[in-house]
Amino acid sequence: MPILYETIRNLYFHVGMWFGMMIFFIISVVYAVRYLRTNNQLFDIYSVQYAKSGIVFGLLGLVTGSIWARYTWGAFWSNDPKQLGAAIALLIYFAYFVLRNSMTNNDKKGRVSAVYNIFAFAMLFPTIWVIPRLVDSLHPGGMGNPASFSEKDIDSRMRMVFWLGAVPGWTLLGVWITSLFIRLQILEEKNFEHA
């Protein structure tokens, strides 16, 4: 791709952010389901904090994508289906926190937000995995093309660094930060119970 030049290195960072976001949202929905099944407060905390990290990574993915687009496609925002889909998916997850913080009853809060979490996760399928693949896009992998990283786009060494380095690296960094938030939240709950 001649317009990309050395910015192909952004693959490790911009795409890594999105993989981090997807993994965190998957973890989040798994804990939401476990919370609904067991009613264990701990799973609720896990679910919320992973959703939060997912949003942070998603926002960073969006911003880095805009910067990259400005200097390769020519505009910060070009209404590309993948951009729109990602923005809608993030807005749905914003609504998750609006809904959650609008309720004061702790038990109700946990249950309703866990159910909404499952809905938000289901909405990820059309907004970021299905529609952008079906319609024409500036992103690779549009129009029903096979995987975004085919032999033509990047060479095998880059692919190896991406899958073995970038994706696990960013994800583990995010998991670590999230675990700090979770530990703090657990302490706060305990402190609240004692007070």
Binding site: E6, R9, F13, M17, L60, T64, I67, T72
Partner: peptide, 13 residues
């Protein structure tokens, strides 16, 4: 070769 775009992205993250 637009390497500064990569730096901008890294700084953002």
């Amino acid at each position: 070769g637009k390497i500064y775009v990569v730096i901008a992205v890294l700084v953002t993250i």
